[in-house]
Deep mutational scan, measured.
Amino acid sequence: KFGRVHERAEGPAKILAIGTATPFHWVDQSSYPDYYFRVTNSDHLVDLKEKFRRICNRTMISKRHMFLTEEILQKNPNLCSHNEPSFDVRQDILVSEIPKLGKEAVLMAIDEWAQPKSKITHLVFCTRSGVDMPGADYQLIKLLGLSPSVQRVMMYQQGCFAGGTMLRLAKDLAENNKGARVLVVCAESSAIGFRGPSEDHPDNLIAQALFGDGAAALIIGSDPKMGLERPIFEIVTTAQTFVPNGDCHLALHLREMGLTFHCTKDVPPTIAKNVESCLIKAFEPLGISDWNSIFWILHPGGNAIVDQVESTLGLEPNKLQATRNILREYGNLSSACVLFILDEIRKKSGREGLKTSGDGLDLGVLLSFGPGLTIETVVLR
């Protein structure tokens, strides 16, 4: 008597548009150690500064975009301390800036989509910054002038794996609601975790050397309108798992001094060791076991992770080039990073006149991972 209210779509979910945005301000990685130790009044920690310089040199990052300028840091000195309470200051900045950054990426996506924004039916927003109620999803709806009846899902504090999570959720929403057009937004800022150095917490140096700011937005829907919408990728399958006891290797915690970062040297080999089982589960039903026969979007948690995944799986050097390019130009953008790589690989395919948006290949994989050593596996066509 009370059956399904919403009719299912006929076809699989497809990515119809991609937009990205970054803050205008950026830092050069080669000179960042001098800048970082100067603005945090830590130049007296000579040995720690040299250690940080070595870490920065190993990241293979060229530059990173950041909202925090020297002027902002001078006005808010607690942000430059390692342990002073600064959460309220971070909140005041990020509750406002995260939706604005997301808006810039959304406008780029809508411009490519070339359809009225009134056709957006759902919003899925993800960030690890600016936790608030009502959330960044609500603020973004107002900034864009979208209908208050847009169906919203707000996900805070997920971390680097969440780019894949957003695709998984959007696929379910698009395929189970005929005519749905799902706006996916990942907006991230390193301002939540920026803090001064400490000899007692070397993990913090890794975070300060890796993370950048950026937002990515996608429009996802099934059954694209012929002649009006141009699909870029099809989302074939999605899956999530985590490595048992992985939280002892990688975890982040909200504290009075901001978001703290805990990471062990076992993260790269542990991820590399567990990736292939995810690939087998995803691609065995499709008859694929040659990992060089697919295109790759791999989250660059750090250069060591990229190198070890490449080595463990025997990947050809060009397979992870898009990942390395984004890491070099932006650093680790947390949940937004794989979506930047997705954009990079389709643009490169277009520039080179390849037959598909995925490096000329039919199928590919998007792998994202993060806290708890959670792994998201997304098969794309």
Rank of each mutant, 00 (worst) to 15 (best):
L367C: 14
E256V: 05
F67N: 01
R346G: 01
F369W: 13
C263S: 14
S277K: 14
L123Q: 01
I93E: 14
T69R: 02
V309S: 03
V267F: 09
T237W: 05
R255L: 07
V39R: 05
I141R: 02
V309Q: 06
I288E: 01
N318E: 05
S147G: 07
T238D: 07
P268M: 01
T270I: 10
P269C: 15
R53K: 07
P269N: 09
P148R: 06
A13F: 01
R324V: 01
D362T: 00
R54H: 09
D47I: 00
G11M: 11
R54K: 11
R90E: 02
G314W: 03
R324M: 06
V27I: 10
T312V: 11
D290R: 04
Q240S: 05
D362V: 01
L361F: 07
D28V: 03
Q308C: 07
K348V: 05
L366S: 09
L259T: 02
P12W: 03
G145F: 04
M133A: 03
L73P: 12
G258A: 05
S335V: 03
E50D: 14
L333G: 14
T22H: 15
I341F: 00
G130T: 04
G360F: 00
F233W: 03
V106P: 01
K355P: 06
L339G: 15
T20V: 06
K355H: 08
L143T: 07
D132L: 10
K75R: 12
A282Q: 02
T260F: 03
H82Y: 11
R53C: 01
K103N: 13
Y35C: 11
N318V: 07
P285V: 05
K347D: 01
T377C: 00
I120G: 04
L320S: 10
G287A: 10
L250R: 13
S129L: 15
E329Y: 00
T22P: 09
H253S: 14
L254V: 07
E50A: 05
H249A: 10
S349V: 10
L252V: 08
G360C: 05
I93D: 14
I305K: 00
E97I: 05
E10M: 09
H65P: 08
S311P: 00
L254I: 12
P134W: 08
S289A: 06
D47W: 06
I232C: 10
L354K: 14
E71S: 09
I297Y: 13
N245P: 14
P371D: 02
F37K: 08
R255G: 11
I294Q: 12
N83R: 08
L380Q: 15
S368H: 13
F242M: 13
L101V: 04
H253Q: 14
S81K: 09
L140E: 05
I18K: 03
I61P: 07
F24V: 13
F37G: 09
T270L: 08
M108V: 05
F242N: 12
E10V: 11
E234V: 12
H44C: 00
G331R: 12
R230T: 06
M133K: 04
K75V: 10
P268A: 11
L286R: 06
P300L: 06
H82P: 12
D290M: 14
G331Y: 01
Y138C: 07
K103A: 06
E112R: 06
R324T: 09
P134G: 05
P269T: 08
L259S: 15
K103W: 09
Y35F: 02
D111A: 12
E310M: 11
I232E: 08
K117E: 05
T40H: 00
V131I: 14
R381I: 00
W291E: 03
K347Q: 10
N41W: 06
R58P: 01
A109V: 04
K142C: 00
P85T: 09
K355W: 02
V365S: 15
Y330E: 11
P134S: 09
P268W: 15
L279K: 05
S86M: 13
H299N: 11
K63A: 03
V243F: 09
G246M: 04
L339Q: 11
I110Y: 05
K1A: 06
I341L: 07
K348E: 08
Q321T: 06
D343H: 05
T121R: 01
S335D: 13
P231V: 02
Y330D: 01
H262L: 02
S335M: 00
S289P: 07
P268C: 13
E352K: 12
F261C: 01
E316I: 02
P12C: 06
F125R: 08
I141W: 08
I110E: 02
T377I: 03
T20P: 09
K63E: 11
S349C: 03
V27C: 04
L361P: 07
I326T: 11
I15W: 03
Q321C: 15
F283T: 14
G358K: 05
D343N: 09
I98C: 08
Q29V: 05
F369L: 14
A13M: 04
G301Y: 00
K75Y: 01
G258K: 00
E84W: 06
H6Q: 07
F125C: 13
W296D: 10
V95A: 11
